[in-house]
Design a protein around this nucleic acid. Sequence first.
DNA 1: CGTGTAAGGAATTCTGACACG
DNA 2: CGTGTAAGGAATTCTGACACG
Lengths: 102, 102
Amino acid sequence: MSSYRDKKVITIGVVNELTGLSARMIRYYESRGLIFPERTERGTRKYSFSDVELLMEIANKREEGIQTYEIKKELLNENKKKTVRDQMIQGQLNAQFNMKKF
Amino acid sequence: MSSYRDKKVITIGVVNELTGLSARMIRYYESRGLIFPERTERGTRKYSFSDVELLMEIANKREEGIQTYEIKKELLNENKKKTVRDQMIQGQLNAQFNMKKF
DNA sequence: CGTGTAAGGAATTCTGACACG
DNA sequence: CGTGTAAGGAATTCTGACACG
């Protein structure tokens, strides 16, 4: 569905232009497990638009003085919330389906 | 609206991976006025996802033996058709608006 | 902990040109 | 006309490390 948003095609130099973050910082956040670029055949990192958005979120939190480990936990939490929300929506759909069934 | 689709962020090497076209061909189609990449500060070409799609269209037509000049004319025609279609839709909207007005 | 930087090497991109056809 | 290639230079990216704090 969001094929363009999630396709990893942007090199670190362009990510730098887009986010203002240095290549050093971008690589460091990767080493801390906050982002997960792919690689070209010869090893160059490739990022998606959603990676770029995530990096801007991370930059904001870093400006607030939040440490990378805390940011990681927050990100995991956000994903957990999204999963729960999706499960609830799915649950509602299933409930309606079952109503009709009987 | 299609911000990710049209944002120029992909380097020629990745475009090559995505389309299978050589850098030489990609640059040549630019010189023939079929595509219009942007440049980074130091002159590296940057393409959008819609450029990538267009290049695949171009590749198909080239395989049929169509020359770049003909392809260019076809592309201009497609855009003309789209513009006309959009104008007609706009015309319908205006007509409905005027109906209500009187 | 988070970021800068100098280091050395490898891979990328750019342009203009010659080649073939 | 459309594409490959060798050429030379400039800019990019990568990794591991030292520095500061």
